Amino acid sequence: MGGCHLNHFWNTLQEDWPIVVEKTLEHIELSLLSLALACLISIPFGIYLARHKKLANSVITVVSAVQTIPVLALFGFMVPVFGIGFKPALIVLTFYGILPVLQNTYVGITSVSPALTEAGRGMGMSNWQLLWMVQVPIARSYILAGVRLMAIQMISMATIGTFIAAGGLGDIITTGINDMNTARILEGAIPVSLLVILINIVLLQLNRFLTPKGLRKNKSN
């Protein structure tokens, strides 16, 4: 029985392979562009909040509360303004990706030991030098952890873009559900899972690459 299901899946995949490749590329484009935009917004904003701590709790609380709005409801708000397709899906995914990186950037920067900051000032470093040579390198692991979490969310949530004609692997999954075709559902679901695993590995390796060699040796020991 299992062999029959497997054969059916492979036969369906061979027939649909060009569509699977096309939709996977659409999914990657939507996910990675949303990821890049969310990082460009949330990392600088997180650094700003770390320097204006009185604002931090209020801003993070508001962003957290707004992000409790269901994704489909937010799509409903966007469609009358931006129409359907890639653009509103990009805006919604970017919006939902802001919180993890914003919060982790803020926590990472504020967790830097005041002694290190004072030592840098004693060496004559400016605020910008302290930021880029002391605070950001130390907060790197926090920031990348937020990026990893956001990337996983982005890739998974991008499937919902099918409801506003944004393309991606969600198109294949919804077609499989409508046709009650398990093989077609797997054609969409498996690439999503593989993309999540791949981006997780890439970001873990990036974190390792950015870690100073001395710290790498200490961790391995």
Score class of each variant (00 low, 15 high):
Ile172Pro: 15
Asp171Cys: 02
Asn181Tyr: 04
Leu210Arg: 06
Gln205Tyr: 12
Ile160Leu: 15
Gly161Tyr: 14
Gly188Val: 06
Thr211Asn: 05
Leu203Ser: 02
Leu204Phe: 08
Met157Thr: 10
Ile199Lys: 08
Thr174Glu: 04
Phe163Gly: 03
Met157Glu: 02
Thr159Met: 07
Pro212Asn: 04
Leu194Tyr: 04
Ile173Glu: 12
Leu210Phe: 09
Thr211Trp: 06
Leu194Arg: 05
Gly170His: 09
Ile164Thr: 07
Phe163Ser: 12
Gly188Leu: 02
Leu203Phe: 10
Ala189Pro: 03
Asn178Lys: 13
Thr211Pro: 11
Phe209Leu: 13
Ala183Gly: 03
Met157Ile: 02
Ile185Glu: 09
Leu204His: 04
Ile164Ala: 12
Gln153Thr: 09
Thr162Asn: 13
Leu210Tyr: 05
Arg216Ser: 07
Val192Met: 05
Val202Ile: 15
Gly167Gln: 14
Gly168Cys: 03
Leu186Ala: 11
Glu187Leu: 05
Ile173Lys: 08
Arg208Ser: 04
Ser156Pro: 00
Arg184Asn: 01
Thr174Tyr: 07
Leu210Lys: 07
Ser156Asp: 08
Ala158Lys: 14
Ile155Asp: 08
Ile152Glu: 08
Gln153Asn: 14
Leu203Ile: 14
Gly214Leu: 04
Pro212Ala: 05
Ile201Val: 15
Ile190Leu: 08
Thr211Arg: 06
Ala165Cys: 02
Gly161Arg: 09
Gln153Glu: 10
Arg184Gly: 00
Gly214Cys: 09
Asn181Glu: 08
Pro191Val: 12
Phe209Thr: 12
Ile197Pro: 05
Gly168Tyr: 07
Leu198Gly: 03
Gln205Thr: 07
Asp171His: 05
Asn200Cys: 01
Leu169Val: 12
Asp171Ala: 11
Met157Ser: 12
Gly214Lys: 04
Met157Leu: 14
Glu187Phe: 01
Gly170Glu: 15
Ala165Phe: 06
Pro191His: 13
Leu194Gln: 00
Ile177Val: 10
Pro212Gln: 04
Ala166Trp: 13
Gly161Asp: 15
Val192Asn: 04
Thr175Met: 11
Leu186Ser: 00
Phe163Glu: 10
Ile177Asp: 04
Ala165Arg: 10
Ile190His: 05
Asn207Glu: 14
Ile155His: 11
Gln153Leu: 08
Thr174Asp: 07
Ile190Trp: 11
Leu198Ala: 13
Gly188Glu: 10
Leu198Ile: 09
Gly161Ser: 14
Thr211Ser: 02
Met180Gly: 03
Leu195Ala: 09
Leu195Trp: 12
Pro212Met: 06
Met154Ile: 13
Thr182Ser: 12
Gly176Met: 06
Asn181Ile: 02
Leu203Asp: 07
Gly188Lys: 07
Leu195Ser: 13
Ile155Met: 11
Val196Ala: 07
Leu204Cys: 02
Ile173Asp: 10
Thr175His: 03
Ser193Asp: 03
Phe163Asp: 08
Pro191Gln: 14
Asn181Ser: 15
Ile199Trp: 03
Ser193Glu: 01
Ile173Asn: 11
Asp179Arg: 12
Asp171Ile: 08
Asn178Phe: 01
Thr211Lys: 05
Pro191Gly: 07
Gly161Thr: 11
Phe209Ile: 10
Ile197Asp: 11
Asn207Met: 09
Thr182Cys: 10
Ala158Trp: 15
Asn178His: 05
Ile199Cys: 02
Gly176Arg: 09
Ala166Cys: 13
